[in-house]
Write a protein that binds this DNA or RNA. Structure first.
Lengths: 205, 205
DNA sequence: ATGCATTTTTGCATTCAATGACGTTTTGCA
DNA sequence: TGCAAAACGTCATTGAATGCAAAAATGCAT
């Protein structure tokens, strides 16, 4: 599989990588809107037209590793131990596919810069939310498959509730300018609230 | 305030309404991508440029009533009875701002057609998700304000968990082609799961 | 190595969303 | 009636995205 990528494949990989690195560098230097696709293509020494055979849109290049993250998550769900509680399983999924730096060192390299970039460009926020939404639908299917005791609605509610709580909490933290340390704590709290339910929230005085 | 809209205001309203109706009609007739902004502007007898002084983008016109829905929700949260449990409050919010047909009869008129339209156009899905996300942040603030017993993280988690569960469940239902009747039931189930927590889900056999 | 099939790249033309500058018309108000 | 502001229109520009057909690179078998 990886033993013989072939010259063609290797070259494609290199071009792809060059496009990603060039794009993120330009975005950081001049800003997202000020960077044209033509300029990105130039950094990888390919024609503008060629960019669009690697990525469907200018947005897409920012989320180059989403697919592998999803595959990782689906894998984890598929390896569920029979009898393992759904909540334990989902905690593992969150930990390993969201927080763990994924395979490519590229992802690690661009991590924080990318986060800031997305937060500052509405078009990228929109793209991210859309991707995350599709991911949730696929996680729902995987979960329903791996947990026969859950019907489709229950699986969807579980995924949506957990991911939704985390997503909004992270956004609220970023908006307030929290340190990553605090944000991590907040994510754990959000996870607990989703798992224990809104009934577990503090009662009015 | 509404007593004297003034000629100018009335004319703006009429133009705005004409643009909305024209756009939705064209989208239904020829499809979203096949409809140009120029054509939409033509149906309201204004210049293409003028369209963009009413709506920031072509997407935006589809979600013309989102703002009023949000305002409704924030209002409900603001009217919270002291001591009322957060869960009761949020159930009211869901009922009245999501399911109730909002003020304008326009919204009622285009309802189902619009839902189908959004579901079939990725660009609109993305826009909807982004808008819904912003709405959640504002609901979070409102909830935090109305419920002093909740810190910001708890408020965010509550909103995200509830809205997230419903959103994914609705999508899963639509994907499977469920009848509105079943979808409504599913939303109630999703609400219960978010409120009672993932721990309330069925256990493995 | 040579020829052939397939994949990839590329340049070109085109469409259309979106934005800016600037002048003109319409409306509200004194 | 006349002034200021808001709304509207015209024109031009930019840049994303797509289709198409030619050219180049690569894989493969002989």
């Amino acid at each position: 599989m990886t033993s013989d990528p072939g010259l063609r494949q290797r070259k494609k990989m290199r071009t792809r990588q060059a496009l990603i690195e060039g794009a993120l560098r330009l975005f950081a230097e001049k800003g997202y809107d000020q960077t044209t696709v033509a300029e990105i293509a130039a950094t990888a020494d390919v024609a503008t037209r060629t960019f669009f055979s690697y990525f469907d849109s200018k947005d897409d290049i920012v989320f180059f590793d989403d697919r592998s993250r999803l595959e990782r998550a689906v894998e984890i769900i598929g390896e569920r131990q029979p009898g393992e509680p759904v909540t334990d399983l989902l905690r593992r999924v969150i930990d390993q596919s969201v927080f763990a730096d994924t395979d490519s060192e590229l992802a690690r390299k661009v991590g924080p810069a990318r986060t800031r970039l997305i937060a500052s460009v509405p078009a990228l926020q929109a793209r991210e939310l859309h991707l995350l939404f599709d991911i949730q639908l696929q996680l729902t299917e995987a979960l329903h498959l791996a947990c026969p005791e859950l019907d489709l609605v229950e699986a969807a509610a579980a995924v949506g509730s957990l991911v939704g709580a985390i997503k909004v909490v992270v956004a609220a933290c970023q908006k307030r300018g929290n340190r990553p340390e605090q944000t991590y704590k907040a994510v754990q709290r959000a996870t607990d609230i989703a798992i224990d339910g809104l009934n577990s929230l503090p009662r009015p005085a």
